[in-house]
Amino acid sequence: MKSKNSIDMKEFALFFFFLLLCVFFSIFASGFLRPTNLLNVARQVSIIGIVSVGMTIVILTGGIDLSVGAIVGVAATGAAFLMINLKLPIALSAVIGILLGGAIGLLNGIMVAKFNIPPLITTLATMTSFRGVSYIITKGIPIYGFDDSFAILGQGYVGPIPIPVIIMLAVFLLGSLMLGRTRFGRHVYGLGGNEEAARLAGLDIGKIKLMVFAISGLLAGFAGIVLLSRLMTGAPTLGTGFEMDVITAVVLGGVSIAGGEGKLRGVIIGVLIMGVLSNGMIIMSLDENYQWLVRGFVLALAVGFDRNSKRTRN
């Protein structure tokens, strides 16, 4: 929606922080500014980026989805199993992998909407179970031996731009359109802003919750396929810990964990900040142990800043 306050201080501050980070690394990390490196950063964040769109939608309703990492794993290993062990066509296997993700998302949605299990518990449970499923599918051993044509999705380029980056941008664009301009999207914001009001306005709250988890699952499944194509290895550990990176990026992007507030254009900056931060630190060859320290610190800093700017506005 275009409105007068469409670029508010918060988003500006976030963008400024991002630029500051870029300036810092372009001075202290040699080679950071090279176009190939920047494209590399974009490719590195693309998987997290795709998942973060689904996560944003869930968080906007006031929910959370911890199972995205496990879904990435199941979709990737599931598709790998179909391609290698069952010799199904690549495209069909990939689609089934994505739908598998959607189905797990739907299961999350049913548990949340129909059985009133809080999202945190629901997705904690599915996260644990479906990580197990990845190990069951692969019997604990990575699956190899994919046809080279499958690599296009994760490793191909259109001109100089990596295909995963294009996919991520498309997902962000579609997500923005959906959140900003469709009824469903506005209802997502409404539900997160005041659930009771949304109920009284005659919305089917359960259906919306079901949908947001299904979308999150689908996108995580999609990300799983892209990841598989990039690595060409169906390891049961794929996607482990993604949920935390994704939630970090979303929160960094200014989405309120309480629901109802935040935009995808903030989230994409959040995703990029995460990417630039780890890329820059690697170039500066900072000890990996210290990288964790810095990442956590940046998150706390960004959210703390956000909280305090909110207080002064009220």
Binding site: R186, Y189, G193, L200, G260
Partner: peptide, 8 residues
Amino acid sequence: LNLIPNLS
């Protein structure tokens, strides 16, 4: 009041 604060 049953309004949604974050919407216009």
